[in-house]
């Protein structure tokens, strides 16, 4: 973006650098949001399709899913990181998508406010819960676990 002097504008950066405001006095939030949807979307294609392939296509697919399956997966740090990234990116991507939809269809200020308050509350609860579950998971809750950590 070229820096053309504009009347009454501050000398603050009008470029893409964070926190600044552009010439019309608005933040670049919607620009970052637009970019985030594309970047996170790309990552999610890999994360979600990989998740579906491993859980539903390989081995016994859905019939093999149980506590032991989850314990086996999370014994590997790769899957912990995978699931954590997927949780955060999917929730941010989905929450931002719903924010856009609320902005488009809820016409009253009050309605928009309450719908977004509900959305953000739900998103925070789910992200915090999911993160705690990944970090505090105890495979040895299962007494018949064959994992070496439980012996």
């Amino acid at each position: 973006m070229s820096e053309i002097a504009a009347p009454r504008s501050s000398s603050r950066s009008r470029s893409l650098k964070g926190g600044g405001r552009n010439r019309s006095g608005q933040t670049n939030f919607e620009l970052y949001s637009w970019l985030f949807m594309r970047l996170s979307g790309l990552a999610l294609v890999v994360l979600v399709l990989g998740h579906l392939f491993v859980n539903l296509m390989l081995g016994g697919g859905i019939t093999a899913l149980d506590f032991g399956f989850v314990a086996g997966k999370w014994a590997n740090p790769l899957w912990q990181v995978w699931d954590l990234l997927m949780l955060w990116l999917a929730m941010l991507h989905g929450t931002n998508g719903l924010r856009t939809i609320i902005n488009d269809y809820a016409e009253k200020d009050q309605t928009r406010f309450w719908l977004k308050a509900l959305l953000i509350t739900a998103a925070i609860v789910i992200v915090v819960l999911g993160t705690l579950v990944i970090f505090t998971f105890d495979p040895c809750l299962d007494p018949s676990s064959t994992l070496s950590v439980c012996k």
Partner: peptide, 27 residues
């Protein structure tokens, strides 16, 4: 599809969270 996937995601995190409760509850 985006709204549908998002709603499933909320439920899916909740059901997965049952691994913190007990193997029986999750299974």
């Amino acid at each position: 599809t985006g709204v549908g996937i998002f709603l499933f995601l909320l439920v899916h995190v909740l059901d997965t969270a049952l691994v913190r409760v007990s193997p029986e509850a999750y299974n």
